[in-house]
Nucleic acid binder design. Structure first.
Lengths: 322, 322
DNA sequence: CTGAAAGCGCTTACAG
DNA sequence: CTGAAAGCGCTTACAG
């Protein structure tokens, strides 16, 4: 038995395919009686709509693609989860592509996806201009697509202000790679807040967001003669590496140095000590980005960015300095 | 300017659409001269193939769907990453559906996906019989689809054997929810290995794989008069909860009790102490499941299961008993 | 090697 | 409210 097509239903119901199609998509335009006949024929044949055919006719794909820099990274999977929550009830498929293994150009193609949600700031803007696009978390220089972002500068300022409130005067900041948009924004917030609270300029150490660079930052800290008592690191991964390396050298956190991270990835709650950090609302970022993209596809969206609020999560890694 | 179609290329090149189509899919069947003309026309028009149309004609979708129980869970995202690695070069799109928010039936539909990779053991087998399917990690009772699995029983036995090698005699096991396939296999391995090494029957505590149930298991352990010195927990999450709760009560790991988890999720490496655990090769599980599915789609696959090797990762949470 | 034509399974503007 | 017909953009068996 082949899969029944709309013509099979039409024949059995004694109507045209046009009427069957209407009964499916705009039932109110079909008389109740005809509708009932068609419904019986559908049940009898076991007919199910072929979405590929409908989509071809409608010049759409019914799919949205999410471009992620690293599918294995939990930071992104939580955003994806938010995206899926919104897309699924809207009837869209969620396509996922890891930019390490897939050329983003593939999905700039209108015959693959109706729109893009880009979680990777390094995707060249030129490939994104063809399709409706929303960027999440990281802006893409030169691309005028709506973004779903956080205020990185204000978030960094929250961290430094918390140190100041606790009584820390000597602050250090481990940055991401210089030139990165997030790095510069968080650095600006760090310096602004320190200055606003009358603290000396923060000591800077360059990192690259990775665990290993956090360990290296710990080495740098250990070698300082006048060590900062409050260290703010631009990612939780770096904070993990930093604390782990210090503990290996007998340095206590927060006894000898208070530490604040950035992101609130899941594991940092379970560290000893639990990590004080800036929580990014990743699920919400995913939801909102999907909503914004759907709005664009429905023709009612402005071009503005959405800024989502962050939260300073207080845990055991920060305390009053000795 | 509308997007050029194959007819536009054909007109410009002065050939039929059939020839253009052939030049694209089987260039060797077109004369070199014609091919060159067509290539020039393609470049001039900026033509790109419409995959939706091709797929409709071929009665395929070009997409594979992965059904996951929880997209936000890093355990699954690492498998997904492996899947993407294989699917992308093969020209397939990866569709991802979270079974909490999406009805799996949607993707059992041939017009949505060519095949399924199921990471959720609770998907009813009835929805999976229609399309080529591979299950990963968790078998589905009543479904005769190839599985990409680990030997859970042997893995559990490795954990218990390690305890025995260290000199532990009194072993405890925190299970997953009873009735779950993984739970029963790991339990069987635990009991078999204990018996094989002449140890008394392990003390059992029922959990549900969650962090909270690990905490409850710690409470149960604390109340025991004759406490096991080696605790094997059927998930890393439970092991985290267990260790955290014990530490809160001043119990040292591994000083007072050695702990082994299961999965080797990323965070457990960074705990204090680092967690000794059974590593599941999640990336490889993803790769292999995708390869198996592609083999099925190409008509050359047997029905056998693939069993991937696990590894006991030794860290600081296990030691010789006092 | 190349073309005319049918067809994948739908949808919809148009006419009645 | 309903139908005949064209069309979404490809592909391919068949004939030459």
């Amino acid at each position: 038995m082949n899969r029944p097509r709309i013509t099979d239903v039409a024949r059995l119901a004694g109507v045209s395919t046009a009427t069957v199609s209407r009964a499916l998509s705009r039932p109110e335009r079909v008389s109740a009686e005809t509708r009932a006949t068609i419904e019986r024929a559908i049940a009898e044949t076991g007919y199910r709509l072929n979405h590929a055919a409908r989509n071809l006719r409608h010049q759409r794909t019914g799919s949205i693609v999410a471009l992620v820099p690293n599918l294995a990274n939990p930071y992104f999977s939580q955003i994806l989860s938010g995206i899926a929550t919104v897309l699924s009830p809207a009837g869209y498929n969620l396509l996922v592509a890891d930019t390490r293994t897939t050329n983003p150009l593939r999905y700039a193609d209108p015959s693959h996806a109706d729109g893009l949600i880009v979680l990777d700031g390094s995707v060249p803007p030129s490939v994104l201009i063809e399709r409706p696009t929303v960027v999440v978390s990281e802006q893409i220089p030169g691309l005028s697509a709506p973004g779903v972002l956080i205020d990185n500068e204000a978030a960094a300022a929250m961290a430094v202000t918390h140190f100041a409130d606790l009584g820390h005067r000597k602050i250090g900041h481990v940055t991401g790679p210089r030139g990165n948009v997030l790095t510069e924004q968080r650095l600006a917030g760090t310096e602004r807040a320190a200055s606003a609270r009358g603290l000396p300029a923060p000591v800077l150490i360059e990192g690259d967001f990775s665990l290993a660079s956090g360990r290296r930052a710990a080495q740098a800290w250990l070698e300082m003669t006048d060590r900062p008592t409050g260290m703010f690191l631009a990612s939780d991964e770096m904070a993990c590496g930093f604390i782990g390396e210090l503990q290996r050298h007998g340095i206590g956190v927060p006894r000898d140095v208070s530490v604040i991270g950035f992101d609130d990835i899941e594991m940092v709650e379970h560290l000893t000590p639990g990590l004080t950090t800036i929580r990014q609302p990743r699920g919400a970022m995913g939801c909102v980005s999907a909503e914004r993209l759907l709005a664009i596809l429905n023709g009612n969206d402005d071009e503005s960015d959405t800024i989502l609020p962050v939260e300073l999560i207080l845990r055991a890694s920060t305390a009053i300095p000795r």
